[in-house]
C-alpha cells in the first residue's frame, strides 16, 4: 500500500466505521437471524440453523400477496412516473412565461407530508355512507358507476395506490429532469436546427441521450423506492394492510416484527433478505443494461 492510498483509507475511516456499524453489521445480523430456526424472543434461544424461515415466508399467503402487490406497484409506477416526469419537464423547459411558478407547483407535493397527502387522497377516493367522495361524484357526472376505491375491489385499491405513489414520487423526478434538460448546451439545439432536424428527432437523438445518465439514476432509485413502499399504503388503507389485501413486502416485515400477529424476527428477517435479494438483482440488471446503452 503506498502512501497516497494509506491516506485515502484514513480519510475514509470515519465513514467506513459508521457504515459498518449501522449498515453492514445489521445486514449481517439480519442474515444470521433469517437462518435461525425457532428463535425465541424472550429467552433469546433457537433450535437450529436452516432454511425453514424462508420456506415459511414463501408459503405464507400474506407474503405472496405482499410480493404481488409490490411487484405490480413497481411495474406500473416506475415507468409511468419517469415517463410522465420526462413529458412534464420537457414541456416545462420549452415554455418561458410562468416557468418558475409551474416548477414550484409541481414541486409542492415533495415538501408535503406523505401521510397528509394520503389522507387527502383517501378523502377524494373514499365512498362512505355519508359521502361519495369527489372522484365518485365525477364518475357519476360522466355516467359511470361509483366505486369505493379505498375499501372496494382489488384493482380499484391498486389503482389508488399507484396513482398516489406516482403523485408522490413525481416532483423529485421533475426537478431532476428539468435541471438535466437545462444543463444541455443550447448550441446542440442550434446546430440541430440549422441542419433541419425535426423536433422528435432532436428529442430522441439529442435530448434523450444527453440526459440519459440522469434518467438511469431516476429509474434505479425509482425501483428501489417502489420496492420499499410501505407508508403510502398505510396512509391510504390504514395499518391493517393484510386485511385490506394491500400489504407490501416492507409492510409484511413490519407486521412480522411489531404487528398484532408479530413477534417473529426470524420470519421478518427472511422476508427482508428476500426483498434485499430482489432489489439487488434488479439494480444490477439496471446498471448492466444502462451501461451497455450509455456506451454505444
Amino acid at each position: 500500500m503506498n502512501n497516497g492510498s494509506k491516506k485515502a483509507w484514513l480519510y475514509l475511516l470515519p465513514a467506513l466505521i459508521l457504515l459498518g456499524a449501522f449498515l453492514v453489521y445489521p445486514l449481517i445480523d439480519v442474515l444470521i437471524y433469517s437462518f435461525e430456526e425457532g428463535y425465541n424472543f424472550a429467552s433469546q434461544t433457537y433450535w437450529g440453523i436452516g432454511g425453514y424461515n424462508y420456506s415459511y415466508v414463501l408459503h405464507d399467503p400474506y407474503f405472496l400477496q405482499a410480493l404481488k402487490n409490490t411487484l405490480i406497484l413497481v411495474a406500473i409506477t416506475v415507468p409511468l412516473s419517469t415517463g410522465l416526469a420526462l413529458l412534464i419537464s420537457t414541456g416545462l423547459s420549452s415554455i418561458r412565461p410562468l416557468r418558475q411558478l409551474y416548477q414550484t407547483v409541481y414541486f409542492l407535493p415533495y415538501v408535503t407530508n406523505t401521510l397528509a397527502v394520503g389522507l387527502v387522497f383517501m378523502v377524494l377516493f373514499q365512498k362512505t355512507e355519508y359521502t361519495d367522495g369527489l372522484v365518485n361524484l365525477m364518475l357519476q357526472w360522466f355516467g359511470g358507476p361509483t366505486i369505493d376505491f379505498i375499501d372496494g375491489p382489488y384493482w380499484a385499491k391498486m389503482f389508488v395506490l399507484c396513482f398516489y405513489t406516482i403523485w408522490v414520487v413525481m416532483p423529485f423526478k421533475i426537478l431532476v429532469l428539468t435541471s438535466a434538460l437545462a444543463s444541455v448546451n443550447p448550441d446542440y439545439y442550434k446546430a440541430a436546427r440549422v441542419d433541419g432536424t425535426s423536433r422528435t428527432r432532436i428529442f430522441f437523438r439529442i435530448t434523450l441521450p444527453m440526459i440519459s445518465p440522469m434518467l438511469v439514476y431516476l429509474v434505479i432509485t425509482g425501483f428501489i423506492g417502489a420496492f420499499k413502499a410501505y407508508s403510502d399504503a398505510v396512509a391510504l388503507f390504514g395499518t391493517d394492510l393484510n386485511a385490506a389485501g394491500m400489504n407490501t413486502i416492507v409492510g409484511y416485515v413490519y407486521d412480522m416484527l411489531y404487528g398484532d400477529s408479530g413477534g417473529y424476527p426470524s420470519y421478518a428477517s427472511a422476508a427482508a433478505i428476500l426483498l434485499f435479494a430482489i432489489v439487488l438483482t434488479i439494480t444490477c440488471i439496471n446498471l448492466l443494461v444502462s451501461r451497455r446503452r450509455l456506451e454505444d
Binding site: 448550441d187 446542440y188 446546430a191 440549422v194 433541419g196 432536424t197 437523438r205 439529442i206 444527453m210
Partner: peptide, 29 residues
Amino acid sequence: PPELRGVGMVFQNYALYPHLTVLQNILFP
C-alpha cells in the same frame, strides 16, 4: 427557417454531439 436556407454552420465550441461517433455526427444533417 434555417433548414430551407442551405447554410452550413460551425459553432464556436463546435457543438459536436458527444454521444455520437465522428461518422454519425457527419451523417446527422
